[in-house]
């Protein structure tokens, strides 16, 4: 049986399927832009419903937290070869400046350490360039084990 880790295309499909089925992510229109074995680039489109300051039109910082949590969690799943689920343990965000009104925000999440029980991820949010970030984040995820029957997203079959 092929594993997710040895088949990048299947792993990507698994991540995409997981990411795109998250109801609140759908509500915000979150999309995967690209992925690598341990990282993910996702996009939050600008919409009037996610504004945090009606006078400036800036996106609510909480909507950025949703983008960061979902992108970082999916990067952790990618780093685990798509064979395990994770639960957010903690997450910290530094809000460096407001996101420009009218522009989508990108989140680049990179998993930099997979330990026995915990996965460590950093994430950076920007509109145009990661060199000019809106927010930076560090988060940790608990490994919560394999996908249960009925929880498989269908794209990947992992080895036991």
């Amino acid at each position: 049986m092929s594993t997710a880790a040895t088949d990048p295309a299947a792993l990507g499909e698994h991540a995409r399927s997981f990411f795109e089925r998250i109801p609140h992510g759908q509500t915000l229109g979150l999309e995967i832009v690209s992925f690598a074995p341990r990282s993910l680039l996702a996009r939050l489109p600008y919409r009037p419903e996610i504004v945090g300051n009606p006078q400036t039109g800036h996106i609510h910082s909480g909507a950025l937290t949703v983008l960061i949590d979902q992108t970082s969690g999916t990067a952790a799943i990618l780093a685990l070869g798509g064979k395990e689920q994770v639960a957010t343990l903690d997450l910290r965000v530094d809000h460096l400046r407001p996101a420009q009104a009218g522009k989508p925000v990108y989140a680049q999440a990179d998993c930099y350490r997979v330990a026995r029980d915990v996965v460590f991820v950093r994430c950076i949010c920007y509109e145009d360039s990661p060199d000019d970030p809106v927010a930076t984040s560090m988060s940790t995820f608990m490994r919560t084990g394999g996908w249960q029957a009925g929880q498989s997203t269908g794209g990947v079959r992992g080895e036991a």
Partner: peptide, 10 residues
């Protein structure tokens, strides 16, 4: 969604 919990608290 963990992000919604965070956004609500913030």
């Amino acid at each position: 969604h963990g992000g919604v919990i965070a956004a609500f608290m913030e």
